[in-house]
Nucleic acid binder design. Structure first.
Lengths: 153, 153
DNA sequence: TCTATCTCTATAGAATAGATAGATATTAAT
DNA sequence: ATTAATATCTATCTATTCTATAGAGATAGA
């Protein structure tokens, strides 16, 4: 299950991708429009900035902007920033060199071998899907829906 | 990240698959051999029994057995029992008919659309991998390793 | 009946997630 | 320079979930 943090992050990024005009967008606007607790969102945005996905401008007229085109931001990147990757088991995390206490030899651990497959499969989807894709799919679903509604009238 | 509960479950099931001789195996043996807290394991085994993966025998000479051949128990089934599926977002859970409070229309939610792809991808791995596969891969890795050791002597 | 089992209910402690408050630093406009 | 509008930082609090444990109860075999 992805955390609310990640969900909020994706919602905020989606809003930025859809509404970016070059000018920074306020935290308060993001919080209000996407219905995210303001202070909680702040922490999320800082993480995304540190992760290189957002850039910010302090002071009057400041706010947040995407640091890259939406088509260059993968969902995997975002999830990675907020959840530290989708490792499933700690021993599959890139940066972590721990061995599970119960596991004699990671190379021979059946659970690890299976979860490694799962992780590859997850990553292949998350790395190949961008923020732009996500927004486009959402808009396309909305268009499709409103078309159906039109017909039914 | 899969929970310790799920990890323990897979370890216990792996042990049962490797050591089953037709006779029931004791909780205490599973707990000791796989280094799992006894009482915690009890709860896990009950869940697996209720999920149809294990059967038990009460009383003297009792214990646990696989309810099905290891090749008929998918890892997805086990994960499903202990984590209630790998939904990623609640609204993708089969049995749950809730709409995320923040999400106006699930059909048009970009996050949901993307996570639905991820879920499909996870499920395809978990449903096609069985307990027998897991055990076999682990044993195969061990064989391979001991062969390498033999050569180096 | 006695003993070895699993089973059930309750609970406690630790870790994590989710949310909030308030003081601080920075910038633009006046 | 002053002021107002911003993001930033540090600290904290609460609720929830995860992990683990205790003990009494039910069942079956010898």
């Amino acid at each position: 299950m992805i955390s609310k943090k990640t969900k909020y992050a994706l919602k905020a990024l989606g809003y930025l991708a859809e509404h970016s005009t070059g000018d920074p967008i306020l935290i308060s606007e993001l919080a209000k429009e996407e219905n995210i607790p303001r202070k909680f969102l702040e922490a999320i945005l800082v993480a995304l900035r540190k992760g290189g996905v957002l850039k910010s401008k302090i002071g009057k007229g400041g706010g947040y902007m995407l640091a890259l085109p939406a088509s260059a931001i993968t969902i995997g990147k975002v999830v990675g920033i907020l959840e530290g990757g989708f490792a499933l088991v700690e021993c599959l995390n890139d940066n972590v060199k721990v061995v599970c206490e119960e596991c004699g030899d990671p190379a021979c651990c059946g659970i690890r071998l299976v979860m490694s497959d799962v992780k590859k499969s997850i990553d292949s989807v998350l790395e190949s899907t961008t923020l732009a894709d996500m927004v486009e799919r959402s808009e396309s679903a909305r268009r499709k829906k409103s078309k159906i509604v039109d017909f039914s009238i």
